[in-house]
Amino acid sequence: MKILSIIIILLFNNTISFSNENKKNEILKNLRCLVCQGQTISDSNSDFALTIKDVVDEKVNEGLSKKEIYSFLSDKYGDWILFNTPLKKNSYFLWFMPYILFILGGVFLYLVIKKRAQK
């Protein structure tokens, strides 16, 4: 019971302690710097990255949600700019395949172990 209450507090605590600063940092870490080689906007010092940082800063201060900012940028630059791949038709395979493989592997393993343990 004690553990349960702690868990609830934790979950709750987590959502309210999210400051603008954290929100901004999180967004910048999830954006690809288009003019760099696989770098995030947060890591990059390029001119493009600095501009995007300013824009995100502005949007966060205007009170836009994370989702709104992501969709604003992906609208302009395509999903290529998002490192946190959105769940869409074209990424179902990416997001679900690992779980399917894990389950299939587990079933296979279970059958092998069960079959051999009986003998």
Partner: peptide, 28 residues
């Protein structure tokens, strides 16, 4: 291995087969 392999290759496959570009990064 499968997760890392899918994450690394899926964008290449999607781009080659459909021309759509997506990024897979640390959040995935």
């Amino acid at each position: 291995l499968a997760v890392v392999l899918i994450g690394t290759l899926y964008p290449v496959f999607l781009d080659t087969l459909t021309g759509q570009k997506i990024s897979v990064g640390p959040p995935y």
